[in-house]
Design a protein around this nucleic acid. Structure first.
Length: 467
RNA sequence: GGCGCGUUGGCCGAGCAGUUAGGCAGGAGUCUGCAAAACUUCGUAGAUGGGUGCAACUCCCAUACGUGCCUCCA
């Protein structure tokens, strides 16, 4: 497939580094609170990328990290459980929200078994090794409050800082200097390790006799986890557009400082933000929604996946309830179409349409993940099914492909019960006898049991009322 | 202040230099025992001002507005 690469700002063909294995590292959640749907949209795009690559015949190794130690997790765990041991408080908080995160992932159609999740706290030792190596090689220095990475040393070694972003004026970033509360040589240097303050949770760390008990900086977590799972370099690094700087830029610096290669990953995949009322959805603006908000409105959460796929990952999309409801209608249409495979329908001429549509859909997603186009082709196909008539076999066959790419839980839909099937047969009988009264009564019975009937040239076709 | 991105019909949202995107919502109609569905059809989009082209929503330049990153952030 072809994909936009933030490193080159161009769309280029994805070619695996090793055989036909694609390695992906996705920046996952910081588990101090429920994810909002903007966070989740990022994972939906990464998941669709994963699915498309698999559909291209590649084996995908997909790592997603869980950040379970950082400023926010520590702060919140101290507030909530100030009587508990700091480490225990941290772990009980992050366990809870990691749990809700996995539930959310399942709800939005992500097969969590096709990912390897890694936790930051399981990789502390590896982070310490990297920090130690960076210190030894002169890329890092120790201060009163921690260990810092020296951008200047990195640049001096002949590598480029600013691979993803044009950083010519980064030193002039006024906000950056104002917010600088740490003891570092240069405003752009960043913490690899933060020494323990007060009763924060900490890990033992000693270098050359110097006691540095504390916790890792945010960026080093991803460098360590990606390296231990995938090595350097790997194929695709994903995340929201806001992670480009400084997070990914710093990851690159850490991961490549000690390596001949200056590439951390061959492709960087970044998705645009979800907006609300034209503004970025964020916790700080308090304009965010969670999956729970969607559930509370009795809207199927998979509608959100459809909503996300309706816009391209590199353009912003504006979230509104009206748009989500519109996506829900599309989801219903797709599900009703999927259920046609249970209904023994036939239409020879339609087979051709399926044979043409599926490669088109695949071509669209392969072209820089153009999911809106792919969805529109699918919808046209569904409309055509209504027009000409359905073919159960063709639908069964194509569902496998559609499900593979879109992840809408279409394959585990159930057939109606034997009793309901019998009831439909009885109605057909009544209709043959022109017993409209009985026919209508049966139709109402079926409706009450959750089955909607429409009469077509191919006979009765059912769909579920609750989808 | 620095570096980007966007502006499409009531709402959302693509592709494409010349031929209908698609969806949602609305009007009218066809079909139907009824219903539902489906279909047909209507409102004829492309921020503004220039430029290049036989031809621009589509390329280029400006302006306006919006928005993102530069600080934790998907």
């Amino acid at each position: 497939m072809d994909l936009h690469n933030t490193l080159t700002n161009q769309i280029s063909r994805i070619i695996p580094l090793k055989d036909n294995i694609i390695s992906i590292y996705s920046c996952g959640p910081t588990v101090y609170d429920s994810a909002h749907i903007g966070n989740l949209s990022s994972y939906i795009y990464a998941d669709t990328l994963h699915r498309t690559l698999e559909a291209s015949g590649l084996n995908v190794t997909h790592i997603m990290n869980i950040t379970d130690v950082d400023d926010k997790t520590i702060k919140k765990s101290r507030e909530l459980n100030h009587k508990q041991e700091p480490m225990e408080a941290l772990s009980s908080l992050t366990k809870e929200y990691a749990g809700t995160f996995f539930e959310d992932m399942k709800d939005i159609g992500i097969d969590i078994n096709s990912y390897d999740f890694v936790k930051a706290t399981d990789h502390i030792e590896h982070m310490q090794i990297i920090i130690n190596n960076l210190l030894t090689a002169g890329f890092a220095y120790i201060t009163e409050d921690g260990v810092y990475f020296s951008i200047q040393k990195y640049i001096d070694s002949g590598k480029k800082y600013g691979q993803l972003l044009n950083l010519t004026n980064i030193n002039n970033g006024k906000a950056r200097i104002d917010n600088d509360e740490y003891d570092k040589d240069s405003a752009i240097d960043f913490a690899l390790w933060k020494k323990r303050k007060g009763d924060e949770p900490f890990w033992k760390f000693e270098i050359k006799g110097e006691k540095l008990d504390g916790r890792p900086g945010w960026h080093i977590e991803c460098s360590a986890m990606s390296a231990s799972a995938l090595g350097i370099p790997f194929d695709i690094h994903t995340g929201g557009i806001d992670l480009i700087f400084p997070h990914h830029e710093n990851e690159i610096a850490q991961s490549t400082a000690n390596s001949k290669n200056q590439i951390m990953a061959t492709t960087f995949f970044h998705n645009e933000h979800l907006l609300v009322g034209g503004k970025k959805m964020s916790k700080s603006l308090d304009n965010f929604f969670t999956l729970l908000d969607i559930k509370n409105k009795n809207i199927d959460v998979l509608s959100f996946r459809v909503f996300v796929l309706q816009s391209h990952y590199r353009s912003q999309s504006n979230f509104s309830w009206e748009n989500l409801l519109s996506a829900q209608i599309i989801l219903q249409d797709i599900r009703n179409w999927a259920d046609l495979r249970f209904q023994n329908l036939e239409s020879k001429e339609l087979k051709k349409d399926y044979e043409q549509a599926l490669p088109k859909i695949f071509k669209s997603v392969s072209n820089d993940l153009n999911t809106p186009e792919a969805l529109s082709i699918l919808i046209s196909l569904i409309k055509k099914t209504g027009e000409i008539g359905a073919d159960s076999q063709a639908i069964s066959d194509s569902l496998v492909v559609i499900e593979k790419l879109f992840g809408l839980n279409l394959l585990n839909r159930q057939d109606i019960t034997q009793f309901q099937k019998e009831t439909i047969k009885q109605r057909a009988l009544a209709r043959n006898n022109q017993d409209w009264e009985l026919s209508d009564t049966i139709r109402e019975e079926l409706y009450n049991s959750g089955i909607k009937i429409r009469d077509t040239e191919q006979g009765q076709i059912w769909s579920r009322t609750n989808t």
